[in-house]
Write a protein that binds this DNA or RNA. Structure first.
Lengths: 127, 127
DNA sequence: ATTTGTGCAAATCGTTTGCATCTGA
DNA sequence: TCAGATGCAAACGATTTGCACAAAT
């Protein structure tokens, strides 16, 4: 997988890839992945986690999701799909693709084309 | 307007409100609003711009839009509507409401309800 | 007079970078 | 061997906070 993406399979990258891709679809911040790695006794620095996440993203193995503020989430599901965002615990959840659709999109302005459509459905606790 | 929102009409708040609301719909970062204020000889500190933007948001006069990274945009249009985001120059543009709709939303998870739906249509230059 | 807002500078948070060291092909 | 990767600590940009001072009711 790493070789295919033109990335050297180093210890750190292999361990991180393992954590990311062997447990189903995940939505992680760099911080969270780093903690998880440390917990699993995978010695890796935070800087390397950042580097790796960005390299994986460039290679098309991950997708960045902007939610708010500084925190960036990385999604192991790179297909076209949308998200629920739970404001209470800051967790992202995939919305089953197929069900949801965006209709009636107006023409983009002059000379522009759509690169991606992000849909984030924000959830709060029912009172 | 400020009194209605329970905010004391101070010089700074009045000046910032003027800049924000007397020029049609706007999408500004704190930084940008601060620069504009300084340019128009409205002496106000960046900290106060941040405070004011958040107070206005809480009072329902503004709406925050998350795009990516650290930068937060504040939108003077608080109605339900979606955005184009131009990756080239980092500008937000309202999408005419009415045209666009999101359909087929699945049930939110247990005990959760939808607080808001954010749609961001990312644009790139046509090649 | 009392409460609330403001400005400054320092602190914080997530993220990035420079650079010496290490590692995989 | 040696380009490329890693770790550390320092640098960074956007945002926030603590606190003395100023302005609004």
């Amino acid at each position: 997988m790493l070789r295919n993406a033109g990335l050297r399979p180093t210890r750190q990258r292999m361990s991180l890839a393992e954590l990311l891709f062997s447990r189903g679809d995940r939505h992680l911040t760099a911080e969270a992945l780093h903690e998880e790695a440390v917990k699993e006794s995978v010695p890796v620095s935070l800087a390397t986690v950042y580097n790796t996440l960005h390299q994986f993203t460039e290679a098309g193995l991950l997708r960045e999701v902007a939610v708010e503020g500084a925190k960036t989430y990385f999604d192991t599901n790179t297909s076209n799909h949308f998200h629920f965002f739970c404001e209470r615990d800051g967790k992202l959840v995939d919305i089953e693709p197929g069900a949801l659709s965006v209709d009636g999109l107006p023409e983009p302005p002059e000379n522009m084309e759509i690169s991606r459509i992000d849909v984030l459905v924000r959830l709060v606790e029912k009172r």
